Computed example of a mutant assay.
Amino acid sequence: MKNTKGKQKIEMKEVEDYENRMTTFSKRKTGIFKKMSELVALCGVEAAFVAFSETGKSHTFAHPSMEDAVGRLKSPLIDESPRKDDTNTPSLVGAYKRQKNEELKKLYADFAEELELEEEKEKKLKKSKSDKRFDKKWWNAEGLSVEERKQMHQSFVELNVSLCGKVSQQFRKDGDGSSADLAGHGH
């Protein structure tokens, strides 16, 4: 005669008691991980499993890795038939090579686009610098405020007065009022 009830069918409904629910989660999770490991070993497949406990903690199983599984979900490989160059390689390795190749192509395209944008910026900067050479001259009043224009005008007036004063001094030194070579007098 048996002293235990043996293996009984359990009704599928949420376990009411929190501690019993956590225990059931832990046991069932372990069972699923074991079955997935057997599936991978027996069938040579890729597998991934993610479960989040009530506390929000994630529990994962993945073969060969979770990164590979997520990568496959993001960009599934349509053509998994072996190619000429990898007929002796397992399909997983061939798929990995194709995926890496696609990633490198995208990276190259991104860098080429970035380089083109930078070259365009450089051309615009050079053109802008050459266009602004004339604008940067001290006599250009474009873009100045009224106050800055008044100051610029005053500077021109002062320059004019100063130059006129120097010319008249030079004429007085020469004495006769004839035009003299201003540059030749030690200045």
Rank of each mutant, 00 (worst) to 15 (best):
K35C: 08
K166C: 15
D86P: 10
C43V: 07
K173H: 13
T87R: 08
A41S: 06
V70K: 09
K105E: 13
K35A: 13
V45N: 13
D110V: 05
E119M: 12
D110H: 03
E148P: 07
A141T: 04
K5Y: 01
K126E: 12
G175T: 00
K74P: 11
M22N: 09
S145A: 04
A51K: 04
K57D: 05
G143K: 08
T24I: 07
E80M: 02
T4F: 03
A51Y: 08
Q99T: 09
Q169A: 14
F156A: 05
F33W: 01
N140F: 07
K136M: 08
E102L: 12
F52N: 13
T23S: 14
R83T: 02
E119F: 10
D79V: 02
E158Q: 04
M36R: 14
D17T: 09
K132M: 12
H153W: 02
K27M: 07
E158P: 02
Q8M: 08
V167E: 00
H63Q: 14
V93W: 01
S162D: 00
W139K: 04
D110E: 06
G71L: 03
V157I: 09
G44M: 09
N20S: 12
E46S: 03
E116C: 11
Y108W: 04
A112M: 14
S178V: 11
V167L: 01
Q170G: 03
T24L: 08
E120L: 10
G6K: 00
G177A: 03
Q169P: 07
E67S: 14
R149M: 06
M152W: 14
C43A: 10
V146N: 03
E122Q: 09
I78K: 10
Q154E: 06
E148M: 08
E120P: 07
Q154F: 06
D131G: 11
K84V: 01
G143Y: 05
L39D: 02
A141N: 05
H153V: 01
I78E: 04
Q8A: 12
S130T: 10
H185P: 03
W138D: 01
E113V: 03
G94Q: 05
R133Q: 01
K129W: 09
Q154G: 06
R28Y: 06
A51F: 05
E148D: 14
F49I: 15
R172E: 15
D110M: 04
K121P: 05
H185C: 08
K124R: 08
D68A: 14
M12K: 15
G44W: 12
G175W: 01
S155N: 09
E116F: 10
